[in-house]
Design a protein around this nucleic acid. Structure first.
Lengths: 402, 402
DNA sequence: CTATTTCGTCATGGCCGTTTACAAATTAGT
DNA sequence: ACTAATTTGTAAACGGCCATGACGAAATAG
């Protein structure tokens, strides 16, 4: 049961549980969890009116969640309103935690997030993973995970699952990395390497970044396009609060959308793909720089200083992004486009040309482009939170496991 | 309650009904309906094992559906298997019917479809609607509808709703036509014109065509891209068995995806949009033909005869389509791309160049391109069936209304 | 200090799917 | 032809779950 449960459904509403009374109970438990979690602190009566059940029903549901240690009673509220004050409920800060991990080209990172959504433990380590085989990388990552888990356990948390963000394409099984160009990994089954102490999910870092934006971003809508560039350019499509994964799990390959059909050939077999204009390598070449080191920081610094060739390179990349995004926006009609990952840091120099292109090519009100508040933290947080969402979506499973 | 209920959910599973026992009952009634409808004829025991309830529970559910006249008992089955034969159940061919209507540039069409999915009445009329204001067109359409409804009522059917397919952009409210270039309609609220004898839904013909493909097409997957061209080029994105509508309801505007960013200007404000290469007008111009009359038939006939300029025009259109679809396929990773509407008839001359472009620009196994079996019938059937699906999705509502 | 309002809980009741049992209807085997 | 085995559909008892209505508790308003 390591499949992500937070897929394409309104929070806490109908999951494909059998439509029997037990399933109904489980769904209602989830709805209570979501209501309390979303509001931070809520009385039983408030929960009841919010999810459409009676106070009596909510009482029994809350009792059960408290018995499982997922919800805590904070004591009486002190509102200015008339009537007996409610007793504030909050999601517990102890108990299950989501463990998120990130495999980057030059680093590994792990964090633990409790049900309230706060990061309770973390660890980062530099690591030149480019070209290393999966096994030693995973071994090193496991070490970090063990450390974070130990730290979390000292705070009365226990891992409910592990989610790993990788810079590459992941199959729909949520375990095997089909292709990670920067790591030079092919068809690596992380499921066997990270053998099963906890339920495991592996996904693209762009996907996790988009989920982080969805869950943690302020005011982010439920329909948007999240674009992030590390080395390749990945996008994640969020439709009605759920990721669009595609048949094989490869949706969001914005990097190979044709921008100029007769442009330079691309390793993918096409010509004039976006990556040939806005990919890291292409931008560095256009800016006259050599690859290596902290490339985003370098670019940002040079651009800040006024380096004209860097600025021109970023401007052209923005133009190409704008063209590719025009197609995507026409096709999907999202509420916004969010720039995340490395693009967030470079947005001051990308955005003008990007938006010019996008608005000039679109009739009617243009699709707003925003910059992610989370930046490079997104994928790691999204991974950890995906585990937490799994618990919120079906609190009954932790009762079976504890 | 004219909002389409068949949105983004597995058949008969969790709809946002309150998660109470009554809601559960309604969902299970829907699941029985879907099971029987999908299989044509099914015993109670087969339904039970299929939807995961017990035979006893299914018995009471079926009793209720029979009492409402939605399901009929056909009598004992005669299988070669051991054991008492089951009693065959089928969806009733009488009772509620879906009324579908289509407003084309040069015609109006209406049909009635019963719960079994068979067309029971239809009417078509030529009508030069280009440039006419909505009111008289709707008046003429209403006349047709009344005729079809009368015919249906003579067969013991009563209209459960009316769905209208229009060649243009429709707002998410499912009532107002925001922009229909071929008709020259702008912000026309069909809801007030087609005043409410029955629940009304208005939608883009491409969307209804895609739904028809989803529901009626043989072996069509739950994730695909349906491309149809009448005058503009519209696509409909189906994700997990549901239409992707977009924030404003404008998703699927494939016609304005940039194909050559420096190409000829387009009325939409962009340059080199797909429509400039594969739109009807562009193709006719490239083929050296004048607009007017049955254009698809004309093109097909000339191409069949071997007219080289027509064939070249269609080949180039296919190339442009292939480029635009490459972007879409990279972004969405659909299981297939389906060519519908006018494109279906022209596919012999479009497909080669389209597929060449698509496969050469995609790494890995190419996305298969198929041709719709429904062709120009799609939108009308999809509209009528959308009403039928609404009944299958919540059979309880008809009980309240009958 | 009383009336009013709201909150949480308890007892009751009704609804619904499950469980268990059984009769009916068919096939397989002798 | 007759029995055993299998499957179907239904009926009765059971248990779980939410709704209903009533009540005490705890606050505010006057």
């Amino acid at each position: 049961m390591s499949a992500p449960l937070h897929e394409a459904r309104p929070p806490g509403a109908g999951r494909p549980l059998p439509d029997t009374q037990q399933g109904m109970r489980r769904r209602n438990l989830a709805r209570v969890m979501h209501a309390v979690s979303a509001e931070g602190s809520l009385s039983r009566a408030a929960v009841a009116s919010r999810i459409g059940l009676t106070r009596a029903a909510v009482s029994t549901l809350v009792d059960e969640l408290i018995r499982w240690g997922l919800v805590e009673e904070l004591g009486p509220e002190r509102p200015g309103r008339v009537g007996r004050p409610g007793s504030a409920l909050a999601v517990s800060g102890r108990g299950p935690a989501g463990i998120g991990a990130e495999i980057g080209v030059d680093h590994l990172a792990v964090c633990a997030v409790d049900l309230r959504g706060t990061v309770r433990a973390r660890a980062v380590r530099h690591a030149a993973n480019r070209g290393r085989t999966p096994a030693p990388v995973i071994e090193e990552l496991s070490e970090l995970v063990r450390g974070v888990v130990a730290e979390a356990e000292r705070e009365a948390l226990w891992p409910a699952g592990l989610a790993v963000a990788v810079p590459g394409l992941v199959a729909r099984d949520g375990r095997t990395v089909v292709h990670a160009p920067n790591l030079d990994w092919h068809d690596a089954d992380l499921g066997t390497l990270l053998s099963g102490e906890w339920p495991l999910t592996v996904d693209n870092e762009a996907n996790f970044g988009a989920l982080a934006e969805l869950w943690l971003g302020d005011g982010t809508p439920r329909d948007f396009l999240h674009v992030s560039a590390e080395i390749g350019i990945g996008a994640a499509v969020v439709v009605d609060g759920a990721l669009l994964r595609g048949t094989r799990g490869f949706a969001g390959e914005l990097g190979h959308v044709p921008v100029r059909p007769d442009g330079p050939p691309c390793p993918c077999g096409g010509r004039g793909c976006l990556e040939q204009y806005a990919g890291e390598e292409a931008v560095l070449r256009a800016a006259g720089l050599e690859p290596g080191g902290d490339l985003v920081g370098l670019l940002a610094e040079r651009a800040e200083r006024g380096d004209t060739s860097v600025r021109a390179a970023l401007r052209d990349a923005g133009t190409a992004l704008g063209i590719a995004l025009t197609g995507a926006v026409n096709l999907l009609d999202p509420e916004t486009v969010v720039l995340g990952g490395a693009l967030a840091g470079l947005s001051p120099w990308l955005l003008p040309s990007l938006e010019t292109e996008l608005t000039s090519r679109t009739a009617g009100p243009p699709c707003p482009v925003t910059v992610s508040r989370l930046g490079p933290e997104g994928p790691l947080l999204g991974a950890a939170h995906s585990v937490v969402r799994g618990v919120l979506d079906d609190p009954a499973v932790v009762a079976e496991r504890s």
